[in-house]
Write a protein that binds this DNA or RNA. Structure first.
Length: 775
DNA sequence: GCCTAGCCGATTTTT
DNA sequence: TCGGCTAGGC
């Protein structure tokens, strides 16, 4: 086979480094893949290469990602290269889904029974609340959330209760943290349940305590691949290292400059240490960027160069220089949103696809202002992130019902729905059920049954509780007779759950009912209820409405791995970005992670990156005067263009031209001199709203100083508007031009900064001048 | 057992 | 400023 060297079409089109990364199959390999350097392509091609050279069967490849989305995409891309062979890759998935898969096969070895349940954060917190109550710990002072986070932190670091340092265990509830952790683990075992952290931790324990099991996996996995290695935490690292000790053919792909999840346990150290962890490891750097234009790449590279402790990469591109990174100051967050909204309208009129425009914010509260603006403008937008489908209350309630049907011993599920919809079974009754359950060592459902057979409950409560228990009995019988989707409908109807939302007059109720229908629909591909439930806790994200043409609004964190033609980066102000808390809690490390976040933001842009900052922002309801982010000063002059916000009031600082040494480009040169209730401000407010009512605005009573300096742009709106109409086009009719996406073409019409170009390949398009290069 | 007024806290998020 | 959660009244 090797001699015949059949044509390998998938290898063509790879650059030399990428090709090296694909073909270096033996031994440990670290691929340092900068932003936009074709990392996913390398991973998927490598798998295709392993398969098509016959070095391993699909079932002998372990490929791990962090998110289901990444796993799905990888699967799709491999499929497009090697076809159905990918169907035989059971070990392509997230750390957690592979973790469960392994645990399910050997659960008895770690003290779990088959069919154990996986708790999500919500269940986890309810469990911890019970523990805290049992220990008489004031939940006000020591919230269950905090304990959950602490325990998660320990699990992320691979620490079981006995390994937690006594000093650390003392941090929660006056030294009872460790004890609570141990108690929590004991409760989980009793419930035959695990949480997300356990999926890895118990796996590690399994491998350590059952060497023959580990050896079996060593024989099985000939090749291991890990995506986003910079995001792995200690537990994932340990888990992986144990598995990789077999073949040692482990390939980790990542970018230390894009490590932005330190706060949830990711250890950049894992990637920095790779070479010492895996002696003889080969390191390949992917530095050729295929995504962004020259100015954007240069700006991002200079920014990230301010971080110490990097492995260091120098990204370069062979593309056009493109447009400079634009930095725009706005007076306040409202003006920021208005300016962005206006720009997007212009782009839209020029034929720019809205789905190729993204607004990336540091914190989700920033989204609101943009949403409000878009609603006013009638601009289609889509918020990415937020509560996911399976996290919604109605979905979890529905799932809890189904879990109760599936397993009469699922206490957490029973507890969740015993009084949803309200049936008059309150805390007092629940406590009785609990007490009996504990005393008789029964599941809650059985304890409830026993209780209804006694005289202890009031007749009314007794009847409803008995009704519920009998319903579950009935549904369990039906589960064996009707398809699981039908069963779900029956359960939701007969339990009164659907009715509860039908009666609800609130705005969200219709959406919730929709979601319930969607849930039932999503059950269809599964064979039975059990199969569905096993899957649901780990893999359930509805990627609905991805196709529509709308502006994408999301946090910087959720933008990682994505790319857009035009990216807006608002809110670059000290305190917000870098975020004050990151600085307070993590110091220099926090600052560097924030800087990586800025780097991630900039490198999402293909053609245009537009940074904004506001001089005034409302935080927790109070107006604060803010300073431009230090990151702005770290953007190199030659690649940046600084502007005042159009059609507004600017940011109130000096003009940016005169920068003397040591001084920020954005330092204010004039001290605060005025207040919100100056005639100028009121006139401006009136002009802006068009109402002419000078008492509108609502800021005046605060009497905050504002920083409009004499050196700033003119205050009168009209002046700036006139200026923003812009100079004549730099292009001439008939001129040859280049566009990064459409290629070469000829200018056929000029309308301000919007040009019509007849492209050689793409035909006639209306495009913005800034996307064009002279040739 | 349910309803509602007041209090507290308010980055980032996957599984 | 706003929303989620808790305690206390009915």
């Amino acid at each position: 086979m090797a001699g015949g060297a059949p044509a390998r079409p998938y290898l063509s089109g790879l650059n030399p480094e990428q090709r090296d990364a694909v073909e270096s199959l033996e031994g440990p390999l670290l691929v340092l893949a900068g932003a936009g350097t074709g990392k996913t392509r390398v991973l998927t091609t490598r798998i295709a290469h392993i398969l098509s050279t016959g070095r391993a069967y699909p079932s002998q490849i372990l490929a791990v990602t962090f998110t289901n989305k990444a796993a799905r995409e990888m699967k799709e891309r491999i499929h497009s290269m090697v076809g159905d062979a990918v169907e035989g890759m059971p070990w392509l998935g997230t750390f957690h889904s592979i973790g469960v898969r392994i645990l399910r096969r050997h659960c008895e070895l770690v003290g779990l029974k088959s069919g154990f349940t996986i708790l999500d954060t919500d269940d986890q917190i309810r469990l911890l609340k019970q523990l805290l109550a049992a220990e008489n710990i004031d939940e006000k002072r020591w919230p269950a959330r905090l304990l959950a986070a602490t325990i998660d932190g320990w699990k992320n670091r691979g620490l079981s209760p006995d390994l937690v340092q006594p000093g650390e265990g003392a941090t929660f509830a006056n030294g009872r943290g460790q004890m609570l952790y141990a108690a929590y683990q004991a409760r989980l075992k009793a419930l035959n349940a695990v949480d997300f952290g356990d999926l890895l931790l118990e796996g590690i324990r399994l491998f350590r305590e059952a060497p023959d099991v580990l050896a079996d996996y060593h024989r099985r996995f000939k090749y291991l691949l890990v995506d986003e290695y910079q995001d792995t935490n200690v537990a994932q690292y340990l888990w992986l290292r144990l598995l990789a000790q077999g073949s040692r053919n482990v390939c980790c792909v990542g970018d230390d400059d894009q490590s932005i999840y330190g706060w949830r346990g990711a250890e950049v150290d894992n990637i920095l240490r790779f070479e010492s962890d895996f002696p003889g490891a080969k390191v390949i750097r992917l530095e050729r960027n295929y995504r962004s234009t020259g100015h954007i790449l240069a700006a991002a590279s200079h920014l990230i160069a301010h971080n110490a402790g990097r492995l260091g990469k120098t990204l370069f591109s062979e593309g056009v220089e493109g447009e400079k990174v634009r930095v725009t100051g706005a007076w306040d967050s409202g003006e920021e949103a208005r300016a962005v909204g206006e720009e997007i309208e212009t782009l839209q009129r020029a034929g720019h696809a809205l789905s190729q425009i993204a607004i990336l914010v540091r914190a989700s509260f920033q989204m609101r202002e943009f949403e409000d603006r878009f609603v006013t403008l009638g601009m289609p937008y889509r918020v990415i992130g937020g509560p996911r489908f399976y996290e919604r209350a109605e979905i979890r309630d529905a799932l809890a019902y189904l879990r109760c049907v599936q397993s009469a011993s699922d206490d957490l599920a029973f507890e969740r729905i015993v009084n949803v919809p309200k049936r008059g079974i309150g805390d007092a009754t629940l406590k009785q059920i609990h007490d009996l359950a504990r005393a008789a060592a029964l599941p809650l459902q059985e304890a409830a049954r026993t209780l209804t057979e006694s005289e202890e409950l009031k007749p009314k409560v007794r009847a409803t509780l008995r009704g519920l228990v009998q319903s579950f009995d009935r549904w369990r019988v039906q589960a064996r007779q009707v398809p699981h989707t039908e069963l779900a409908e029956v359960v939701l109807d007969e339990s009164g759950y659907t009715e509860m939302w039908q009666k609800d007059r609130s705005a969200e109720a219709t959406g919730r009912l929709e979601n319930l229908k969607e849930l039932v629909r999503s059950m269809e591909p599964f064979e039975n209820l059990q199969g569905f439930l096993e899957h649901i806790s780990l893999v359930m994200d509805a990627d609905k409405g991805a196709g529509e043409d709308a502006v994408q609004v999301m946090t910087l964190h959720s933008a990682k791995g994505l790319e857009f033609d035009t990216v807006y980066l608002p809110g670059w102000e000290e305190g917000l970005f870098p975020h004050q808390r990151a600085l307070d809690e993590q110091g220099k490390a926090g600052l560097e992670e924030e800087r990586r976040l800025a780097y991630v933001g900039l490198t999402r842009a293909r053609l245009s990156a537009r940074v904004y900052f506001a001089s005034n922002r409302r935080i927790h309801g109070l107006w604060n005067s803010t300073l431009p982010s230090r990151f702005l000063d770290e953007l190199p002059d030659p690649h940046v263009q600084v502007e005042e916000s159009k059609g507004g009031f600017g940011w109130g600082g000096s003009s940016y031209g005169a920068r003397t040494s040591g001084e920020s480009r954005f330092d204010r040169t004039t001290p605060f001199a005025s207040t919100y209730d100056t005639p100028g401000w009121q006139r401006a407010q009136a002009a802006r709203t068009g109402s002419g009512n000078s008492s509108s605005g609502g800021f005046s009573e605060r009497g905050r100083p504002f920083g409009r300096g004499a050196g700033g742009a003119p205050v009168i709106e009209g002046t700036l508007l006139a200026a923003s109409t812009g100079p004549k086009s730099a292009f001439a009719m008939g001129e040859r031009v280049f566009h990064l996406k459409f290629g070469y073409g000829q200018v056929t019409d000029i309308d301000g900064n919007k040009l019509t170009v007849l492209f050689d390949k793409a035909g006639e398009k209306r495009v913005l001048e800034s996307f064009l290069e002279k040739v």
